[in-house]
Simulated assay, not measured.
Amino acid sequence: MKRAQNRPDALRIVESFNPDVALIDISMPVMDGIALAQLLRLRAKLVAMTGYSGSTGRLQGDERVFECHLIKPLSLDDLAEVLQTS
Rank of each mutant, 00 (worst) to 15 (best):
A4K: 06
A4M: 04
N6Q: 09
R7H: 12
R7T: 14
P8S: 13
P8Q: 14
R12T: 11
I13A: 07
V14I: 03
V14A: 11
V14C: 10
E15V: 04
E15K: 05
F17C: 09
F17E: 07
P19H: 04
A22D: 00
L23F: 11
I24H: 03
D25V: 05
D25R: 02
I26Y: 03
S27D: 12
M28K: 11
P29E: 01
M31H: 07
M31Y: 06
I34E: 07
A35L: 13
L36G: 08
L36A: 08
A37N: 04
Q38L: 00
Q38G: 05
Q38E: 11
L39G: 07
L40Y: 01
R41G: 06
L42E: 15
R43I: 00
R43G: 12
A44G: 04
A44D: 00
L46A: 05
V47Q: 04
V47E: 01
M49L: 15
M49G: 06
T50K: 00
S53R: 13
G54A: 15
G54R: 15
G54T: 15
S55F: 12
T56N: 06
G57N: 11
G57M: 08
G57L: 09
R58W: 06
R58D: 09
L59R: 08
L59W: 05
Q60S: 13
G61E: 06
G61R: 11
D62Q: 14
D62R: 11
D62Y: 10
R64A: 13
R64M: 07
F66V: 00
F66S: 04
F66T: 01
E67F: 13
E67A: 14
C68G: 09
C68R: 12
H69C: 04
L70K: 01
L70A: 04
I71Y: 02
K72A: 12
S75D: 05
S75N: 03
S75L: 07
D77A: 14
D78S: 10
L79C: 05
L79G: 02
A80Y: 06
E81A: 08
L83G: 03
Q84N: 09
Q84D: 10
T85G: 07
T85V: 07
S86V: 04
